[in-house]
Design a protein around this nucleic acid. Structure first.
Lengths: 223, 223
DNA sequence: CAAGTGTAGATTGTCAACAATTTATGTTGA
DNA sequence: TCAACATAAATTGTTGACAATCTACACTTG
């Protein structure tokens, strides 16, 4: 493909990002077939890079591969989602612990900025941008922990949980932003009250669990 | 390649397993270059499947990719290993929690069997078999949890930590098996004393940390 | 002698093609 | 009408080839 201005080497990763975004936003719903030529044609690439991209997504847990039958979007059961959220809460807590000693103020500043963006996107009714900012909020915290290990694990955990989170957010989207937890988390980080941050973070994750499951299952059945 | 008797479709995964084993056993030490044709030639396959295999290992955290410069074995710093072990202890604990309600007796039986194998391999001075049985012990517990999510995450965490664990085990290998923790874990599982299992498991992981770091660093410098 | 330069070789990134297999289609027969 | 079967189309698995880039090494130059 070699898009001008883009570095040519990242094609499999570029493809992986694009396909990932499409899966998360349910353009390819769980269980649907991902054809290699179709995906390649979409971005002007051949099947080789597409296969590498799909292997990446497979390891992230977004996609499953059956021999001679190709790649399909992974479908989660209720128990899986429960485990996933439980794990995510644990790991986000672990991330908070790793924040000790980092620059809390600049992190809090960045988070407030993201929160402001979220409010704006919500007012403008831009679901995708609102969702993206939501993701960015959590990602910013992870990045601040500066732990290659935690980052690597969170890539996987996030990838697996994002389709459900997207569906939850878009079913509940009302134009009024829900930034309660986010702003409290940001404030607690600014105060360097890490036990509180931990508590808020895990709560923030777990309070969404049952509604996320509901949204996911409902979307599955209606598709 | 199409090895007779082997299913032809799993070639990238077969390659990934083989390369992974070679990385873990330090045949390709951290930082070393993984050339695609060389790897393919080793197993009679072309570069396509090799690249897919390397992408898989990349996501598992064993390998890093630089554009136009290829894949290299990932090198860990001391802080990374610390984080890795900490995380592994947490997650193994999470796995234990997920064991509730499963068949503890048959699991304990299987673990005792593996322990017996370990003793035998140690007596015979077979380091690799001893190590493999060691891995199998932990893997058996993970499998018993029957959680797709935890399994997926543990693949990654194990992959990242196994080179250090292998080096620790092979530097300390004396012919006398260290099955103290393993047998106690197995017994506690048989008694369904899960809090004790959790405690033993996390201890089992964390007590090895500093020695693992030492073994890893030392092997790095001598190479 | 050190530093920079240029060329040859090696290595990666991508593609197009072919064989093997699966999926879809249509036909026949009860 | 429906099921079983045969055939055609589509899709995957793998390979070999070519272009782009990097690396190593000899060579020049100050």
């Amino acid at each position: 493909m070699n898009k001008p201005g883009e570095l040519p080497h990242t094609i499999p990763y570029y493809l992986a990002e694009q396909i990932k975004a499409d899966i998360i936003r349910w353009r390819y719903p769980p269980g649907s077939n991902l054809r290699e030529v179709e995906l390649g044609g979409e971005f002007g690439s051949s099947r080789g890079p597409v296969r590498e991209a799909l292997r990446i997504l497979e390891l992230q847990g977004l996609v499953v591969h059956s021999p001679r039958r190709g790649f399909r979007v992974r479908k989660w059961g209720e128990e899986d989602l429960r485990q996933l959220y439980r794990l995510r809460a644990q790991l986000e807590g672990e991330v908070i612990d790793a924040l000790a000693g980092k620059d809390a103020t600049s992190l809090a500043d960045a988070l407030d900025q993201i929160n402001a963006d979220m409010v704006r996107h919500a007012r403008e009714g831009n679901v995708d941008a609102y969702f993206a900012a939501n993701i960015a909020f959590h990602q910013r915290i992870i990045d601040s922990a500066e732990s290659a290990v935690l980052s690597a694990i969170m890539v996987q955990v996030n990838a697996m949980s994002l389709p459900a989170r997207y569906m939850l957010l878009s079913t509940e989207f009302s134009g009024r932003p829900q930034y309660d937890y986010h702003s409290r988390i940001s404030a607690a980080i600014r105060d360097r009250n890490f036990p509180l941050v931990r508590k808020l973070t895990t709560e923030h994750v777990t309070t969404n669990l049952s509604r996320a499951i509901e949204a996911y299952e409902k979307a599955l059945n209606s598709a």
